[in-house]
Design a protein around this nucleic acid. Structure first.
Lengths: 130, 130
DNA sequence: GCTTGACCTAGAGTGTGCTCTAAGTTCTAA
DNA sequence: TTAGAACTTAGAGCACACTCTAGGTCAAGC
């Protein structure tokens, strides 16, 4: 229930530099410091890091994540904005999934093409535009 | 069957700057120049741009895309490398899809949470780590 | 013949997200 | 009590992928 920055770095795969950078950017406003001025991460902070990772991986920039956290801090008056943000993010993820499926189809086609080409020892039809 | 850089920019949504940059980086080695030194893009070049987009969107850096194009230029002796690259890329896309599904689940949970919170006018349980 | 617009090259500048360095403090353990 | 590891801040540096600027060419239309 209390982790050092090094422990959190190991747990999350982020570097200690990145964790400090996130804090500086206002993405981790709930971290405490102990008497020796060392950061003490709680389980809740780990939860925030997971959420940051989720929003980042789905295309939100740190600025957008900060906006969400600022809304969170502001309290119940921003519930609608936060809901809207998640709804917007859901739409993005759906688009990303559709895009990814299209890319997968193209890659599968290439794998077929090149599997045959390796068998033949040559790539004949050059269907690069497929 | 012959497009100016401006026409290709409109078609693809890339800027003319980006297209020139891609060429400079060796990603478009098949583009011709006409007598006035203007680039002439062919349909095949548009196909290459689609492939570049596909590889970029699935996590390959321009350097990796260049590697593929260099292999392509090198000819049949690199068929196996190119096949391996596409297989590797397929694995990446599968991972990305799984990740994206996890993120979608988290976002859906948040949408439920905040939909209820907006109804209630307040967010009680603070299940940020869910 | 002159303006406009699209193109050209070379190279500088920008935004994002880290990543590292320097100089210093604090804790642990031999 | 002293070495070493882990932490601190402030700020510089870096990689990537653009993005823009300056200065110039060229073709078409008024």
């Amino acid at each position: 229930m209390g982790y050092t920055i090094g422990q959190v770095a190991k747990k999350t795969g982020l570097s200690v530099h990145t964790l400090r950078y996130y804090e500086k950017e206002g993405l981790l406003p709930f971290i405490k410091k102990n008497s020796a001025d060392l950061r003490v991460f709680s389980d809740s902070d780990l939860g925030w890091l997971e959420l940051i990772e989720c929003l980042k991986a789905t295309g939100l920039h740190l600025k957008g994540i900060k906006q969400y956290i600022d809304w969170y801090i502001e309290g119940d008056s921003t519930l609608q904005q936060r809901l809207d943000m998640f709804k917007q993010q859901k739409i993005r993820v759906e688009q990303q999934m559709a895009e990814l499926q299209k890319h997968m189809n193209k890659i599968n086609y290439k794998i077929e093409l090149y599997t045959q080409a390796v068998k033949d020892g040559t790539l004949h039809p050059e269907k690069e535009t497929a």
